[in-house]
Computed example of a mutant assay.
Amino acid sequence: MAKCAFLGLGVMGFPMAGHLMAAGHDVTVYNRTGSKADDWVTRHGGKACPTPRDAAEGVEFVMACVGNDDDLRAICIGEGGAFDGMSKGAVFVDHTTVSAEVTREMAAAASERGIAYVDAPVSGGQAGAENGQLVVMCGGAQTDYDRAEPVIGAYAKACRRMGEVGAGQTTKMVNQICIAGLLQGLAEGLTLAQKAGLDGEAVIDVIQGGAAGSWQMVNRHKTMLAGDYDHGFAVDWMRKDLAICLKEGDALGAPLPVTALVDQFYKDVQAMGGGRWDTSSLMARLGKLADK
């Protein structure tokens, strides 16, 4: 069992850190809002620290799951940052979905200090984190990944090294691009079914076992048909992720026309007050257009 720190106790990090503790690891936590770290300790044990540096001192692995590029920089190299507390040879594992640019920047800063770095964004949402069933896509040196993978296994149903540092984040971009296009198609299909007077549940029951089937179809069609979006992965976070995808696409010369279009549809959802709605709320936008 390993000595670990977990930085960031949001809807994903809180249960992920809990799975580390349940697996028998020695876990220290940090959260920007200290009361949440205290709540975690009350529920799971371990201890909380006031800064990332304090949490990272003397541990073998530091896991992070924060909000964006700036948040990652702050906990890594900001005042009281984790890199100042980590020992040489320790491994930093970043589960945040961030840009490949900041990943390379933080990996270089870690390397200068003798710290190993694995970028390891996750897919599976809050439910996956709570159930320990996340999919983790990793980038980093093989030896660093091999050390981290058994620890990541506490909250993952699948974990795979995709290449060198940054490959995990690029794979996550592919994941988000595919989800965005798929959800728009599902929203349009269900909207057509409703307008045609079909039983939406019956339609999904017929088609989900064929070529159109997907995780989103199986797990989101009921709430989409009910107009219930107060759950799941927030539109605000999806737009953050899609901005990363579009920037990387431009840098690589990879055209992403559907992604750019769906990103603007999500902007419309935000204007409707749906920034915290689940990404399946693309259907609510179509409903509003149909009512005009």
Rank of each mutant, 00 (worst) to 15 (best):
F6V: 01
T33G: 04
G85K: 07
A202L: 07
E101T: 12
K247S: 15
M63C: 13
G132E: 12
D94M: 05
A17R: 09
G163A: 14
T259V: 10
S280V: 04
V151W: 01
K240D: 04
V27I: 06
V66F: 03
A2H: 04
S280I: 05
V269A: 15
G140P: 11
V135L: 13
A23C: 09
Q126F: 02
K240G: 01
V62E: 14
V27Q: 02
H25D: 09
V206I: 13
G249D: 13
G85C: 05
P150F: 07
V98H: 14
G78R: 14
Q184I: 00
Q142T: 07
T170C: 08
G80L: 04
C65I: 06
Q126R: 12
K3A: 07
G18R: 03
Q184W: 01
D268S: 14
A22P: 01
C138T: 05
A156S: 09
Y117Q: 12
K222F: 00
L134Y: 05
H25A: 09
T191P: 01
Q194M: 04
K172Y: 05
A127N: 14
E101A: 14
Y266C: 05
Y145E: 11
R147Y: 01
H25E: 07
Y145R: 08
I152G: 08
A17P: 08
K47N: 09
A90P: 04
N68H: 14
C65F: 12
V136T: 13
C4E: 08
A148H: 06
T259Q: 12
N219Q: 14
M12S: 06
M137R: 03
Q176Y: 04
A187F: 01
G253L: 04
G185Y: 11
L198M: 10
A55V: 07
G185Q: 14
K222V: 04
V151T: 02
D84T: 02
G249W: 15
D71I: 04
Q184A: 09
K88G: 00
V135K: 10
G80A: 10
S214V: 05
A290K: 11
G163K: 10
G275M: 01
E201F: 05
G185T: 06
E57C: 13
I244Q: 06
F92Y: 11
P15M: 05
G153H: 14
L225I: 13
G273K: 09
R147K: 09
G249C: 12
M224T: 10
A110C: 06
R276M: 03
M16K: 09
G34F: 00
K195L: 04
F14S: 03
A64K: 01
V27A: 03
R43H: 01
C178H: 12
G8C: 12
D228L: 10
D84C: 00
V93M: 05
R32F: 00
C245N: 11
G140Y: 11
A202I: 04
I77L: 14
L282A: 04
Y117W: 15
R285Q: 08
A271H: 09
P257A: 13
S280T: 06
E60F: 00
Y30M: 10
G89Q: 07
V91C: 11
G58R: 12
K247Y: 09
T97Y: 08
R32V: 03
V29R: 12
F6A: 02
D71G: 03
G185R: 11
M224K: 15
